[in-house]
Design a protein around this nucleic acid. Sequence first.
DNA 1: GTCTATAGAAGGATAGAC
DNA 2: GTCTATCCTTCTATAGAC
Lengths: 211, 211
Amino acid sequence: MGAEPSAERKRTRIQIRNSEAILEAALDVFSQAGFRGATLDQIAEAAGLSKPNLLYYFPSKEAIHTTLLAGLMDSWLAPLAALRADGDPVEELLGYVRRKLAMTRRYPRESRLFANEILQGAPHIHAMIAGELKALVDEKAALIADWAAQGRIAAVDPRHLIFSIWATTQHYADFDAQVRGVLGPAEPDPLVAAEQFLTHLFRAALTPPSR
Amino acid sequence: MGAEPSAERKRTRIQIRNSEAILEAALDVFSQAGFRGATLDQIAEAAGLSKPNLLYYFPSKEAIHTTLLAGLMDSWLAPLAALRADGDPVEELLGYVRRKLAMTRRYPRESRLFANEILQGAPHIHAMIAGELKALVDEKAALIADWAAQGRIAAVDPRHLIFSIWATTQHYADFDAQVRGVLGPAEPDPLVAAEQFLTHLFRAALTPPSR
DNA sequence: GTCTATAGAAGGATAGAC
DNA sequence: GTCTATCCTTCTATAGAC
């Protein structure tokens, strides 16, 4: 806790460029092999640097991993954070489903990085889950509960609704190998059919019975 | 490929006992740390054997892993295999959801073992996914498509329905760390509320519009 | 069948020249 | 800032006594 405002110090262009190349390469490798399965050799090769040079930019393998996770956190929470109280509740929640699915499509490596981490018991992000993430879920769950109490959506458990949205959307990134294997090589883009199905699934479950 | 009918040879009681202790310990360790993250030391300690003794029963770390996966395959597919053509289609599918959720409750380690494997690209079970699993899904998807064509369930994509059932039920085992962190320490058993929510979710999505 | 000891390889991290 | 060389630990697997 020195005088520096953060871990980000003044850096030259080349330092910024190399740091970003390392994080990009590390995302590739960590998301595919997990933390223990990834090696500095693989990351160094993917980044086009030597192994010692990697450790000139980051003090350790763990530091690279931690930097990655922390840097991705905000954008990972953005789709849920964007859930608004105004507008039609059912459409608002379906919009969340679509935003989350768009994340899966665009950032499958990030999804697998988090999946690996949580699957191993979330050793590096325990605090964030029980803190930042829980707070966000609590806030949005209260909003959803309000909607349900007003009869504007069906009576559902808000937290398990959120879990099911996470599970169904991230499935297409995290279990991609299984999805592709089961659908076969002919299938072009599973996410198109997935969006249609999930829209039906959650619209049917959320539409209140009275209308 | 010798004259032996399979890898299972004649074995004494103590051999059977030790083999099972190793597989039980390996399930613990592999499911928590993944293949690369697990070490023979951990497995040996959990099994109450020495490391060389482990390798007396199995030729390699990989052999333990492969034996585990292969041995669990049938029981893992059982809930879907039990989907029957007779009875009410909606209730039949809800029964599948409940059976799958019961697997999650009873066999969370098995769920995480498979999740780890698929997350890393399913290197050891590629063939099984594109073969046995795909065949089973194709068969049951055809049954579900028939139900939909007859208007006995809503018109849904059968394969993505199956994916969503896998995703939502296994989520409570694979992402247990996140579920517990978000719900907080007070929550006793997330799976009770989960079963209620998922029953509503899939009943609403599957019930045909006309009745 | 089970152990101690150890070989051999891989991986994270550091030293020090340039 | 980047490299070569290397240290040291960890890990899989084997050798060989009992």
